[in-house]
């Protein structure tokens, strides 16, 4: 899923300081699963903002809604009758949400409530970790299902570098060295030949480096 972190309240307060009537829009997709932008978090953010604005002598009127998803025009359309009744709209979806909303309603202003971080999953309750860099050409079959592009700090395809120590990355003892895991798995399974094979450089055109990307599935295009 797409993982996100809540933005600091002070940053959100600053974005909306001149607005009196606000819509907070949650999303039932990834941000609900990672507990950052679902209906529950919409309620918490609304209360927090209201209290802060009352305290500052500048009360704000807030309406709460949560959409099925904000990455689909069909659901974005569900707010068409109300979206212009507000001075501004805070989206609690990932970075896709405020953009789909802005494209659908060019006259309204939209603000992000979260910092979108990565594609990953929950490794334990309350902790999420990156697993995919969305590079557009998956090569994890060469690395036994582990991705050095997303998980090696240097995206090395022929690792591990000289900074791997005790299974940890040189950048932090909190970061696992993915190359340590790849090497150990292959050596344990007796597949050294596979490991020492030179991996040529990657064609980054399929990644963000090739410019903004589109996926076109002809069979689905109407």
């Amino acid at each position: 899923m797409i993982v996100a972190n809540p933005k600091p309240i002070s940053e959100i307060l600053d974005m909306i300081k001149d607005l009196k009537k606000i819509l907070i829009l949650g999303c039932k997709g990834c941000v609900t699963v990672c507990n950052v932008g679902g209906a529950k978090e919409v309620g918490i953010l609304a209360s927090t903002l209201k209290i802060a604005r009352i305290k500052g002598g500048n009360p704000v009127d807030i309406t709460e809604r949560t959409l099925e998803r904000q990455c689909d025009p069909e659901y974005i359309a569900q707010v068409k009758d109300i979206v212009h009744d507000f001075d501004g709209v805070i989206s609690m979806a990932c970075g896709v949400g405020p953009q789909f909303l802005s494209e659908a309603y060019p006259k309204q202003r939209f603000f992000p409530a979260v910092d979108t971080t990565f594609f990953g999953g929950a490794v334990q309750h309350g902790i999420w970790a990156e697993r995919c860099a969305g590079c557009g050409t998956c090569i994890i079959h060469y690395f036994d299902g582990m991705c050095p592009i997303a998980r090696c700090s240097k995206s090395l395809m022929n690792g591990p570098c000289g900074g791997s120590a005790g299974g940890k990355c040189e950048i932090s003892k909190d970061v696992d060295c993915i190359w340590d895991m790849i090497v150990r798995k292959k050596m344990e399974q007796g597949r050294l030949d596979d490991l020492v094979r030179f991996k040529p450089s990657k064609d980054w055109r399929t990644a963000r480096d090739g410019g903004p990307r589109r996926s076109i599935r002809e069979e689905l295009v109407i």
């Binding site: 700090s153 240097k154 995206s155 090395l156 395809m157 022929n158 690792g159 570098c161 000289g162 900074g163 040189e170 950048i171 932090s172 030179f198 991996k199 040529p200 450089s201 980054w204």
Partner: peptide, 28 residues
């Protein structure tokens, strides 16, 4: 060389490139 990660240095805010790695650089 691959190079020390920028988080060690005096511009930890920098974007890291790593278009190719040290092995690929040797071959290049």
């Amino acid at each position: 060389l691959s190079g020390d990660h920028q988080s060690f240095g005096n511009h930890p805010q920098a974007k890291n490139v790593y278009d190719i790695d040290s092995m690929q650089l040797i071959a290049l």
